[in-house]
Nucleic acid binder design. Structure first.
Lengths: 340, 340
DNA sequence: GTGAAAGCGCTAACAT
DNA sequence: ATGTTAGCGCTTTCAC
């Protein structure tokens, strides 16, 4: 039996070996400073000799808290989330909390199962990153523990959220393009994606504010490469002059747009400028070098943890919605329009 | 107190409400079929009314197993791992195991902490994906629970591994290029990356097998975009004719190579063919369209879980090393060499 | 088929 | 400063 659990030493074994009570061992293991140096050394030595490792399960049971935060990710493949997690793990770790990540590939049923499991594991707080759930699942869970949504907002009572200010991000894009001299600025929409509606509105409003209402042009798309391809095709198929710049709803779709434009022999940025949204690692690749809008993802993760911790400490009841500010990252896919 | 844990109903509350013993409630909750339909309905109704949710912490304590597998990822940003996790979660879920993912950004100290925490949480098995740890950490942990390495091999006793057959992958690349007519096939090395040495060897051996020993050309690189850029620069800076094809150690480095070639006005695949390794989502992007070697990542995750389950069931003692077979994915960055 | 009782490994009063 | 004791919420014999 290589891994017989029964051989694992318990706190009692350590106490016996050190010749002290198990409470004392507990105090030492938890780093309490009220223990004499002598006894502490004794206990530590015994623990080391036995290869003792505290049992977090037993501890969680009696303390009625696990020091664990659960994170439900709708899609691990989206690099967006990897960076949110960075912030989450950093902030949580600093306060002694560990993170359990559960991923569910855009599958609502699996998402519900993941949520249930996390709840049964008695995590102390829950971070839902861009979840697909219905409101009722969120509401039900929110009655059991502190919960925050990232990159999605909900008006369920007691559910906090951290989102980026999409209208502002869209405004930055349009202003950048307008200042380069563009007027025919089109937008490839993000469909039902999180924040897509806000980005489109921001685009429309800023176009209007710049007196470019007559050039507003929105074609349907989605947060996928396919979405960007279709968007460009729709733009190319239409009558009238091509736009000189295209604001695509996110980076992945912008990549699809770039690919289609390249296939058609349309040069970027000479013939048309392209802007994405998210500043994923993709955008920074030299071979892509996409102008885009950066969401401060690690900050969003940190904010989510801060909300959880605060709710844990204060039993705050009202929901808080944190809005983080995006910034424009200018790279190689935008330039002044052709003189033509 | 919105989230007072004290209000959570326990099995005793359910028993009281249903007018039965808590043992009976336990039987019902665990789906035992030895309970009369009548009592079962009674218990289920009581549980639903109270919003009862079994406490996995208490259950784990008494059962001395958590039904949890721990996964330590050295780098969540590497899309390679996201797909391994897919396979892990699928296979584990099918057997009633949940997965806890711990990420550590290529930080050895954090990796050790993550490992310790998982051990304290008493996960039933551990999957280490491309870990940086030293052998002694692995050996120590392997005495406590079943453990498998993914994308890394170790000769520590009782530690299983799942790796891809790198020499074969490299052979596929060289054969593909040779069959296209290439002879001056260079290799940009992956440095200390997992499998890099095997890929280089496979390259050298296949070149030799094809009678191309005199054309063997290896320049140093790494598994990063920078690595690919430097590799290409080294190749360009050298005397003599340029290679007509370059096998780059992985996809990310291949992207760096593509970027540098583009900047120098060298066309791919007309002037030089490029092949990567890994078939990450990046490679499939239409705008990149990289010929590369696919590792069956979800399979690797499933295999890892299978090894864990088997060890849990059988108390097998010998280490097993599973080798999965890579395949070549031909896309747009390879073509016959120029007639020149 | 159902209930009573013991105990998983630990923490947290409370004593001393 | 250290020991004693009573659970945390559940599963699991073992009776009935």
């Amino acid at each position: 039996m290589p891994h017989a659990t029964s051989v694992r030493p318990t706190i009692i074994d350590v106490a016996a070996r050190a010749g002290v009570s198990k409470s004392l061992v507990s105090l030492v293991m938890r780093g309490e400073r009220t223990v004499s140096d002598e006894k502490r050394a004794l206990v530590l030595a015994a623990a080391a000799e036995l290869g003792y490792r505290p049992n977090a399960v037993a501890r969680s049971l009696v303390r009625r808290r696990t020091n664990l935060f659960g994170v439900v990710l709708s899609d691990l493949h989206n690099p967006f989330f990897a960076e949110v997690i960075d912030g989450v793990q950093e902030a949580a770790g600093a306060e002694g909390y560990r993170t359990i990540i559960s991923t569910v590939n855009l599958n609502t049923a699996a998402e519900q199962r993941a949520l249930d499991t996390l709840l049964e594991l008695r995590v102390d707080g829950l971070i839902l990153a861009s979840p697909m759930f219905g409101v009722q699942s969120i509401a039900a869970a929110s009655r059991e523990l502190p919960m925050v949504l990232v990159a999605r907002r909900s008006d369920v009572a007691r559910v906090d959220s951290v989102t980026n200010d999409d209208p502002t991000g869209a405004r930055l894009v349009v202003e950048h393009l307008a200042e380069l001299g563009h007027r025919r600025i089109a937008h490839i929409d993000g469909g039902r994606g999180a924040g897509a509606a806000e980005r489109r509105q921001g685009y429309e409003q800023t176009m209007a504010a710049r007196g470019l209402t007559e050039f507003v042009r929105v074609v349907p798309g989605s947060y996928t490469e396919e979405g960007g391809r279709h968007g460009v095709e729709a733009l190319l198929a239409a009558d009238g002059p091509l736009p000189t710049a295209i604001f695509v709803a996110n980076d992945l779709a912008a990549l699809g747009a770039l690919a289609t434009l390249a296939e058609r022999g349309i040069r970027v940025p000479q013939d048309v400028s392209i802007v994405g949204y998210d500043n994923t690692a993709l955008a920074a690749l030299r071979h892509i070098n996409l102008t885009t809008v950066d969401q401060p993802r690690p900050d969003m993760g940190r904010e989510a943890v801060a909300l959880l911790l605060e709710r844990l400490a204060s039993h705050r009841d009202a929901a808080r919605h944190v809005l983080v500010t995006p910034t424009l990252v200018v790279r190689g896919t935008t330039a002044p329009p052709n003189a033509s």
